[in-house]
Design a protein around this nucleic acid. Sequence first.
DNA 1: GTGAAAAATTGATTTAGGTCAATGCTCTAC
DNA 2: GTAGAGCATTGACCTAAATCAATTTTTCAC
Lengths: 258, 258
Amino acid sequence: MSDLNLFPLSARAAGQAATLTSQEVACDHCGMFGMCEEAGLSREPQLLEQVVSRRTALARHDELFHANDSFQHIYAVKSGALAAVGEDGKGQRKVFSFYFPGDMLGLDAIDSGYYDSTVVALEKSSVCKLDYANVALLGEHQSSFYHQLIYAMSNRLRLERWTSLLLGTQSTEQRLAVFMLYLASHLKAHGLAHVEFRLPMTRSDIADYLGMAMETVSRAFTSLQKRGVLVVQGRNTRISDLEGLLAVTGLEYPSVSV
Amino acid sequence: MSDLNLFPLSARAAGQAATLTSQEVACDHCGMFGMCEEAGLSREPQLLEQVVSRRTALARHDELFHANDSFQHIYAVKSGALAAVGEDGKGQRKVFSFYFPGDMLGLDAIDSGYYDSTVVALEKSSVCKLDYANVALLGEHQSSFYHQLIYAMSNRLRLERWTSLLLGTQSTEQRLAVFMLYLASHLKAHGLAHVEFRLPMTRSDIADYLGMAMETVSRAFTSLQKRGVLVVQGRNTRISDLEGLLAVTGLEYPSVSV
DNA sequence: GTGAAAAATTGATTTAGGTCAATGCTCTAC
DNA sequence: GTAGAGCATTGACCTAAATCAATTTTTCAC
């Protein structure tokens, strides 16, 4: 675990922390990679063109799709960060999930035929999109494509368990700690900087995701910093003591892999 | 909505409420139905035999599989109820999800190759199991089988969003109300009694699922009963005012469909 | 059916975290 | 650069829910 304390506490100016925006996942770290491969990315690029559109650019606050839009595309995040948002009845905003480079979104709409939440870009982002209706064009590649899709969906289901653990944990400090670990392990899994990074979302976004008050998020950050497990400077964040952070959450090691 | 107030408040003795155990889903209400069909249930029963084993019986507290067991089967619940449980570090028990008749489980292990939580029967239950390795035997049926599997997984992903909403809602009374609606809509979707039913899980199970104290679950039940939206008698439960229950949660109508 | 164990309820007390409010910081547009 | 808006932090206060504890009810094994 010693390889995680890469940056001495005061070495980097906070402003220099890598933003998610600046980090684009290469295809081989993208959730859709297997599917692109199977669809003939290398072998038949012109076939792929009909199915996958690469790098659609989004500005901050742009909507990728809106709740109740009918399902057409599966997306993969290349760079930036997005959030699925909705209302929980009395106009209370609720963030269902965040999407980072390498993540796929829209998978939950295949069956129902419509997207059930609105997805917005939290910062300048780019996505690849796959036209699900055109998958039929893949011909012989089709069934191995589905095979890859099943893996991707299974993986996503497993990831949702994290969320369950995240939201079900009682103490707010623990919840935020689990959230930070979730972020870090995710970024690492996709080959991005995962020790020091800039949060793309506001404190309110985190609050609406974790089901707590924005002020509490702020206090929890302060408190984790006082414990010495995190260095927080606005949105610039560094995990300074991973084991300490794990200890706060009470999580087991192997289940995390940061 | 008037069709929901089927049972006048004092008409039925609590003990006569239908238990989940007594309610078995027919194949056409089972999450695996499409897959069984595609695999040739009606057309080639002997082929199906090699892939699907029907009705494995489980007693209360029996484990279907244990965390870290290697993945082999996808299961579908025929009757009864099960729960995926884990530890959140310091021995604190955590319930990740409940599974009811019609639900599939094990989907999240396809990709990783191992189950990441332990699944136990909460009461006498029975499951069908599908040997994933033998799916290859389906031959020509294979790709349409995968197609159905993708629908099932997509549907499950959408369902997980409920969970997110469930756990992220602040007030404990609201959380429990959403939980009851989730149960009811699920039971209804699979053609089971959904107004009056017997909870298969303990208050502690619910508490460990919703991330609150067992005593708080008990108090929240009492409080919902005082509001007149629920009639609770131990584990026997009846939704006596669905609109009222919806009002407590603040949820929108169309998103629920109980 | 009976007794023991497990589960559920209820009460009293304490504490975590929500709410209200004031102030400080930092991006962005000009 | 400067102004303004949006975002973040901190404090004071108070409510909701955790904890501790005692009692009752239900369930299960014999």
